[in-house]
Design a protein around this nucleic acid. Sequence first.
DNA 1: GTGTTAAATCGTAATGATTCTTATTCGTGA
DNA 2: TCACGAATAAGAATCATTACGATTTAACAC
Lengths: 141, 141
Amino acid sequence: MNVDEAMDKLKEKGYKYTRKRYDMLALFSDESRYLAAKDVLESLGGKYSGLSFDTIYRNLSLFSELEILEETELDGEKKFRFSCSTGHHHHHLICLDCGKTREIEKCPMELPLIEEHEFQITGHKFEVYGYCQQCSAQTQQ
Amino acid sequence: MNVDEAMDKLKEKGYKYTRKRYDMLALFSDESRYLAAKDVLESLGGKYSGLSFDTIYRNLSLFSELEILEETELDGEKKFRFSCSTGHHHHHLICLDCGKTREIEKCPMELPLIEEHEFQITGHKFEVYGYCQQCSAQTQQ
DNA sequence: GTGTTAAATCGTAATGATTCTTATTCGTGA
DNA sequence: TCACGAATAAGAATCATTACGATTTAACAC
């Protein structure tokens, strides 16, 4: 998935083309890491001086619904990143400082961790947190 | 860990015995599931008409610090449950309706999911979501 | 038991993230 | 170009959480 494919997906579903949507998607495409709403405002607020949180949040959840963005909740904030286009289900190592991610190839749900149970399973979350090389180097100075 | 052991732990660390702390711990002990701050207020608000959120949040994070309670973040809320006393590190199946949990014996971090990487790992989260037998029966009616 | 002191609590205000409302603007297809 | 519905701005409202000053209370020494 790239920006143009994502815009096509929007059009296909009957959503309108706007410069702001394009720029938001371009931002996520450039930075392959988790960003919060305020990060988006910070990045695009210069270009669109009147950009409102409402627009950002509305589009973020739209993109997430259409599976253009992946969503997670960290530190009391919703964070979003461009969907990985690897095709297979997987999880991430996430840098708690800059939001950069690295893929974990396997999903623990594939393993026989959970045998018999009385739960009707609807989802799961597996995330590994830490600091990437750059950020951990900076912190130790 | 039971309520009295938890109160002993508080005393040991120099914290005071209060009826509210005891009742909060008793609540978590009775209900072995995840509860949010508002659930605590709802349960104890009858007995203590002036119970303030400050007291609840302050004690919840104190208990969490002392590892009397386990903490997670779900649906934009902090949720707490009495610490499992099994001794070994493990994860949970969590009912999205009532908060009831069931242990998952193993932790995916023990497995060779993550080999070489450039991250300094500090933590992880593995949770499986769904509906327990009771709640899924009720929903389907 | 009484007094002292620091911790705990109350009541409420402040904060931060997110969502909602209403009026206005803009993209799209006729 | 026009009309229509979708998208947006601005700010108010909401929800969870934290902070603050004043008051109350547990613990301990006497």
